[in-house]
């Protein structure tokens, strides 16, 4: 990927604080997301990874701080500008968040119907293409309801919905969570593939060490209520913070981050 050559910041988070009740989840968090990179966001359970994602999307109110997307402060946008901005986002929620009253094909076509004035036939065609792109069978799987799908198929269907408008930034909340290793590896390849084909920028919350090594260009570590550090796998291996050391040098990580393993994955 070419993120190093063109450091165009698409999302800039400065001094972000988010809290619920008396508990502060994020305090003074800073983060940059560069165009065309795949950023992995890691952190312990409850460290605020999903909250950071939701704050950028504007789904949770923030206590303080500034979030700029494509160089514009999101707080200053009016409703119409916000709507246009949201069209440039694609989001894959943890549980898929497919609408249970619609079939898979209709779910994927929702953004097409709501945001672009396409004919029903063309919208159905494009939805079918997207389903095929994520490896689902549009004719057979497209007519099913979300409750009839397996976990992996739900993720794929939700990914198809997330990319249906060709978003510039794709937010993924634990895309490989709950998938078997083979399914997870296939999903990683799919994401990487789509990123290259569609020229996406990815913000990916994950626990999956495999994903971090294979597809992420850069990793942001959340701990102590802020973004502790960002960098490539190699840079984070040299980090001295206890949590980061534990994460990248723990028994599970050793297999991935040994110099040997890193060479294999390139």
């Amino acid at each position: 990927m070419s993120w190093a050559s063109e450091r165009d910041v698409v999302v800039r988070v400065r001094g972000l604080s988010v809290g619920f009740g008396r508990r502060l989840v994020l305090e003074n968090a800073n983060l940059d997301l560069y165009r065309n990179e795949i950023l992995g966001v890691v952190g312990g359970s409850g460290s605020g990874k999903s909250v950071l994602l939701r704050a950028i999307l504007g789904l949770v109110p923030r206590r303080a701080g500034r979030i700029e997307v494509f160089g514009r402060d999101v707080a200053a946008l009016d409703l119409e500008e916000r709507r246009l901005l949201e069209r440039r986002f694609g989001v894959l929620f943890q549980g898929g968040a497919l609408f249970s009253s619609l079939t898979v094909a209709e779910n994927v076509a929702v953004p097409l119907r709501e945001h672009v004035g396409l004919t029903a036939a063309l919208a159905a065609e494009i939805a079918a293409v997207k389903l095929a792109l994520v490896g689902l069978d549009p004719a057979a799987d497209g007519r099913k309801y979300p409750s009839e799908l397996s976990g992996g198929m739900k993720k794929r269907a939700a990914l198809a919905r997330a990319i249906v408008l060709d978003p510039e930034i794709l937010f993924l909340d634990e895309p490989t969570g709950g998938l078997d290793p083979i399914g997870a590896a296939a999903f990683d390849r799919l994401i990487q593939h789509l990123t290259q084909t569609l020229g996406l920028t990815l913000f990916m919350v994950t626990h999956d060490l495999d994903s971090l090594v294979t597809i992420c260009d850069r990793i942001a570590v959340l701990a102590d209520r802020h973004v502790l550090t960002t960098g490539s796998v190699e840079e984070l291996l040299a980090e001295t913070h206890p949590w980061v050391r534990e994460y990248f040098h723990g028994p599970r990580a050793a297999r991935f981050f040994s110099p040997d393993a890193l060479n294999r994955s390139g």
Binding site: T103, A105, E106, A120, A124, E125, A127, A128, V129, L131, A132, L133, D137, P138, A139, A140, G142, R143, H193, T197
Partner: peptide
């Protein structure tokens, strides 16, 4: 990519 996907892209009949 779409050429490869397109072979499978038969939308389901509308409800």
């Amino acid at each position: 990519q779409l050429e490869a996907a397109g072979a499978a892209a038969e939308p389901p009949p509308p409800r």
